[in-house]
Write a protein that binds this DNA or RNA. Structure first.
Length: 344
DNA sequence: AAGGATAACAACCGCATCTGA
DNA sequence: CTCAGATGCGGTTGTTATCCT
């Protein structure tokens, strides 16, 4: 941890209205001040929050403290194994975009997930890679520490695919590295997890492919036919949505928040994107309409009308998606049978 | 019990982007 | 259009807690 905040204001940097700003750990008193201010006044300009709450902190520090620690909706305690699996999976898809990963894990912060990844997962992978590859000296070919499967390393036949875009420690986006990747290729890395999670081992290569593809979509909150993500944010609302739309959570326990939020759902309803027929694959929901509708952080906001980070920055995604062969991607989608993974 | 290793986590830093004047 | 401030995000650091020898 950082050094505890120096009450004397020694350990400071910058000022807030002439008052030296404190740094380091937050004291319980500071937490109280910030918490009560936020609960009373809600989020505004963080600089004002810091000033008005009587905190000798910069707004940035207040924001971080609130988001990572004080927010009432934060989930405390260790990550469940399902959450771990989801993190690993989402990381394989999103790379180090912690905020987007966190957006799919209600009550978890990007910082928490990032820390979890950098400590637990990386270590676990290191150990797994050492255990599974006696030829550890050949570390240059594949950065094994980042090739992830549930419970350890991905089976060797899948590592090739995995390694193609799960070179995660760098900030390079796996998706953007695959300009002509097909959707089914994108789905490939998931068999290990999906099989475990859904306990539906594929009977054949074909069913395996279809199953994993659909499973993955389901896992991250995607409708396999719609191709994009659905639903509400948050457990309760999502659950409700789930109920009505025949979509799934993980084993019926871990509901996965969608990649877009409530507003998107509303838009989706209007455009009949989420039709009641799960096999309705007609809409090109990878298309610009959907992405455009998801682009505004303000619209994606769930925490406040200021668009707190939980929204998604799909504008960037859109651009990157544009680098792929979208037509090809979408061509593959309808060919995937929708598997009814409803747990109920 | 002491000391080292390491896991876990809070918080800072710097940069990119957004927004409003 | 430009610029400055606010905000968001990812990387990184540093401290404490816990485990191991």
């Amino acid at each position: 941890m950082r050094k505890p905040a120096d009450p004397s204001g020694k350990n400071t940097n910058g000022t807030n209205g002439g008052v030296k700003l404190r740094k380091g750990l937050w004291s319980p008193e500071e937490d109280d001040k910030l918490m009560s201010y936020m609960l009373t006044n809600g989020q505004g300009c963080w600089t004002d929050v810091a000033r008005n709450a009587g905190l000798q902190r910069c707004g940035k520090s207040c924001r971080l403290r609130w988001i990572n620690y004080l927010r009432p909706d934060l989930k405390r305690g260790a990550l469940s194994s399902q959450e771990e699996e989801l993190i690993i999976h989402l990381h394989s898809l999103l790379g180090n975009r912690w905020s987007q990963i966190a957006a799919r894990l209600p009550g978890r912060t990007d910082n928490e997930i990032k820390n979890f990844w950098n400590s637990t997962i990386k270590k676990r992978l290191k150990h797994s890679s050492l255990a599974s590859s006696p030829n550890a000296s050949d570390s240059s070919s594949t950065d094994a520490k980042d090739v992830v499967g549930i419970g350890g390393i991905v089976p060797t036949q899948e590592q090739g695919v995995m390694a193609m875009y799960i070179n995660s420690s760098s900030s390079s986006l796996p998706l953007s590295c695959m300009p002509s990747m097909t959707l089914t290729q994108m789905m490939d890395p998931l068999p290990t997890m999906t099989n475990q999670i859904l306990e539906t081992p594929p009977a054949s290569a074909c069913s395996w492919l279809n199953a994993t593809s659909s499973c993955m979509l389901a896992q991250v909150g995607m409708d396999a036919c719609d191709g994009l993500l659905y639903g509400n944010y948050g457990m309760s609302t999502f659950g409700d949505y789930h109920h009505h739309h025949n979509n799934i959570g993980l084993q019926g326990e871990l509901s996965v928040p969608p990649l877009e939020s409530i507003v998107i759902e509303e838009i989706g309803k209007d455009e009949n994107i989420y039709g009641t027929n799960p096999n309705n694959c007609s809409g090109n929901h990878f298309g610009n309409n959907q992405f455009n509708s998801m682009n505004s952080n303000k619209h994606n906001s769930i925490d406040s009308d200021k668009g707190d980070t939980i929204g998604n920055n799909w504008e960037e995604e859109d651009i990157k998606l544009g680098e792929w062969d979208l037509e090809k991607l979408m061509k593959d989608v309808p060919s995937l049978p929708f598997l009814d993974y409803q747990v109920d």
